[in-house]
Amino acid sequence: MDLLIDGLKKAIDMILSGDQEVFAITWLTLKVCLISILISTLIGLPLGIFLGLTRFKGRRLLLMFINIGLGLPPVVAGLWITMLLWRSGPLGGLTLLYSPTAIVMAQILVSLPIVTSLTCTAFQQISEKMLLQIKALGATKVQTLWLLIKQLKIAILAAIMAGFGRVIAEVGAAMMVGGNIQGDTRILTTTIVMEVSKGNFDIALALSFILLSVALLITAALTFLQQRKRIS
């Protein structure tokens, strides 16, 4: 219990004293996670919409792989990206291993299936009749899409939030492909793991509070966006 209070005090201390390193780590965490989820959304949203609205051969197989991806353990994603980026690997020439870009890659790999699958599920539930009605209202294809996106705003934002939850909580892959390098690839989760192994439970706890606050802020913003002005 004392440790908990100590941790909370330390967290407030770190924030108030403007600890440069903690600030840099938090900023990097935020940056990496937001870029990951942004890219996952930019790819996953159109892909999910496409898979939800169309029917073609091989669609079910593709969906199956995406759904398997929902349960992709981050360390497995990390391992794949590591092997891809090894100096001896196929993308070794890019020297991206142990860089924030590598973390972003791993996080996209674990969050893309979530965004895609949940978006697809939402769009699949739109009835034929609804599509017909929207077309009959005089909508162009683009307008139809736009209208559907707005109708499914809640489900889409839920998909984005679920993906974001995954990336901000993720540690295994970030550790493996990032290497937890000081001032370079150290993000909140990997720092927490390191501080725990150093036995600095108070610092680890303080960082965990900062991590939770960051997650809370982002999720709150998305929830606000999701639930805004729902008319009764």
């Binding site: 009749k129 609804m130 017909l132 009605q133 077309k135 009959a136 209202l137 005089g138 162009t140 209208l147 109708q151 008319i231």
Partner: peptide, 21 residues
Amino acid sequence: PLELRRKFSIALQQSLLLDGT
């Protein structure tokens, strides 16, 4: 053509209204 489709209107048995006012 879109202009032609837009000369018509349709209302179905289910009202199929959108989430909004």
